[in-house]
Amino acid sequence: MTDDARRIEGNGPWPHTMRLQRFLARAGVASRRGSENLMTAGRVSVNGVVACELGTKIDVDRDVVEVDGMRVSWPAEAVYLMLHKPSGYLTTMSDPQGRPTVAELVPCDRYPGLFPVGRLDMDTTGLLLFTTDGDLGQALLHPSRHVEKTYLALVDGSMSDRELEPLRKGIVLDDGPCQPARCSLLETVPPDAGCSFKRVRGTSLVEIDIHEGRKNQVKRMLGAVHHPVLELHRPAFGPLRLNGLASGSWRELERAELDALRECSCTVKKQATENNR
């Protein structure tokens, strides 16, 4: 078993070696692309030697990395937290246009290198996972390993259960077919969902579970069956639930939640491997 695999299972240390640009990104210096730009500009050194080659690898435990002469520290342990994202925030850690981002809602100063696992649209609310663990993040988001994500959608029009059949079978969108989705009509919002949709006459409430993560996917799926989404909320990501977390608030994952998330990523990976045989 590799060091990465051990760490995903929670049984081992951080990997001893990794690419320099990945180290810089995980330490919160810049994005992966921004870290590469720092390297090619000659602003990064390893043990006093300028490191311009993008393939440079370092020993996390032993090498001294500096950017513009300032030493870059490495977090002692990976961090995992969930945010109840409110509407009006971009799922990015910075925005050149100065729009509000989710980085303003999580403790980036306390935990350098935090990044969101996946994304929610600016007007979509709900559970957004953050971590400094790039391996687990990749395992959860890899196209062949997407975990189940649950959404509640308030849609326009009085919808019948029969109209959900195309989504259950796997509807085809302009960028290709979707995997079959589990979906149903609800009379009321579940009490632990963490949203307060106001149903009025001529609207319907749909719960939908998908495994993919294409841009605006749920909105496009429901729009394709002629029921545009008015409001969208994600109460669950894999085994994680908001469970009363207030909008705009965050908390670190509990040990049981983290264990369930790791188990989920490993189970999905195993299933994907078996399906590809």
Score class of each variant (00 low, 15 high):
residue 200 V to S: 15
residue 64 V to R: 14
residue 19 R to V: 00
residue 57 K to A: 05
residue 47 N to S: 12
residue 175 D to S: 11
residue 29 V to Q: 06
residue 201 R to W: 11
residue 248 G to M: 06
residue 205 L to I: 02
residue 98 G to C: 03
residue 251 R to K: 11
residue 133 D to E: 04
residue 170 G to A: 14
residue 35 S to L: 03
residue 157 G to W: 09
residue 247 S to P: 08
residue 185 L to F: 05
residue 57 K to F: 08
residue 258 L to Q: 07
residue 236 A to E: 10
residue 2 T to D: 14
residue 41 A to F: 11
residue 71 R to I: 13
residue 35 S to N: 09
residue 13 P to A: 06
residue 7 R to S: 04
residue 272 A to D: 03
residue 84 H to Q: 07
residue 104 E to G: 12
residue 190 P to D: 15
residue 213 G to I: 02
residue 16 H to K: 15
residue 162 R to H: 13
residue 64 V to P: 06
residue 11 N to P: 09
residue 77 E to M: 13
residue 191 P to E: 15
residue 39 M to D: 03
residue 197 F to D: 08
residue 136 L to Y: 05
residue 250 W to I: 11
residue 240 L to H: 01
residue 159 M to D: 00
residue 134 G to N: 05
residue 59 D to L: 10
residue 131 T to M: 07
residue 156 D to E: 13
residue 50 V to P: 15
residue 23 F to P: 05
residue 89 Y to W: 03
residue 8 I to S: 04
residue 221 M to S: 10
residue 273 T to H: 13
residue 253 L to Y: 01
residue 167 L to E: 08
residue 80 Y to I: 02
residue 255 R to G: 15
residue 227 H to P: 07
residue 251 R to D: 07
residue 87 S to E: 10
residue 37 N to G: 13
residue 63 D to F: 09
residue 58 I to D: 02
residue 13 P to C: 06
residue 200 V to I: 13
residue 59 D to T: 10
residue 272 A to I: 04
residue 237 F to K: 01
residue 236 A to P: 06
residue 51 A to R: 09
residue 120 L to K: 06
residue 159 M to P: 01
residue 8 I to A: 00
residue 203 T to W: 00
residue 98 G to S: 06
residue 243 N to D: 15
residue 184 S to M: 15
residue 167 L to G: 07
residue 27 A to L: 00
residue 177 P to G: 13
residue 91 T to M: 01
residue 38 L to K: 04
residue 98 G to P: 00
residue 197 F to I: 04
residue 37 N to M: 11
residue 141 L to H: 10
residue 38 L to T: 01
residue 118 G to Q: 02
